[in-house]
Design a protein around this nucleic acid. Structure first.
Lengths: 93, 93
DNA sequence: ATAAAGCGGTTTATTTTATAAACCAAATTT
DNA sequence: AAATTTGGTTTATAAAATAAACCGCTTTAT
């Protein structure tokens, strides 16, 4: 049995990646609302994903307010696809 | 986004349940080999699954040796099916 | 017959991970 | 200008996974 990439096998990180797979980009506030996570938790998990090179995180401004935008990277996309394949074995699909 | 049943969202426990879904029953030694887990870890995770009523664990003998046999319960089967459905949402299937 | 090693586990301790709580700077509202 | 809100980060705590140590029984070798 292959191992399930532990970086993706986490509810919140999987939710984030899953969202980012279906959208060009998403900002911190959107991700927080969509995943119903706390800011702190989200911040930590985004760091991990970005540390692994699975997402890019860009801080910018909208008017005077900061805006943190996330995008999935090619590496992240690949990791996700592989995770799904592995998972299918577990689920018998 | 629905939450992924945390009892099933664990590599080892998911592997165990996944095996038990496809087999009438499986004993400790078989599960250990198949999942490549340590005995300690497996023991703990089987306890959790059995504590939740997802599997039944029966201790018996084969000759003089003890044998611990596991089977998935109806509750476990249901939980697994639901977990898979929820996961599909995350994976976009 | 007895010590040593192996089998099938369980219990306990350690490490890792997830989560929440506290905090911070800048902007906005009152 | 004080208080509140926004958009986060950092740090502390709780929970989970994992490994290490252990235990009773059996088998093997001496």
């Amino acid at each position: 049995m292959k191992e399930l990439n532990p970086l993706l096998h986490s509810q919140l990180r999987l939710a984030v990646i899953s969202i980012l797979m279906n959208v060009e980009e998403a900002d911190f506030v959107y991700l927080k609302e969509k995943t119903e996570s706390t800011a702190g938790n989200l911040s930590v998990q985004l760091d991990k994903l970005s540390g692994a090179g699975y997402i890019s995180v860009t801080k910018g401004f909208v008017g005077k307010k900061t805006r943190t935008v996330c995008q999935i990277t090619e590496l992240g996309r690949q990791a996700f696809e592989e995770y799904v394949e592995t998972l299918k074995e577990y689920l018998g699909m």
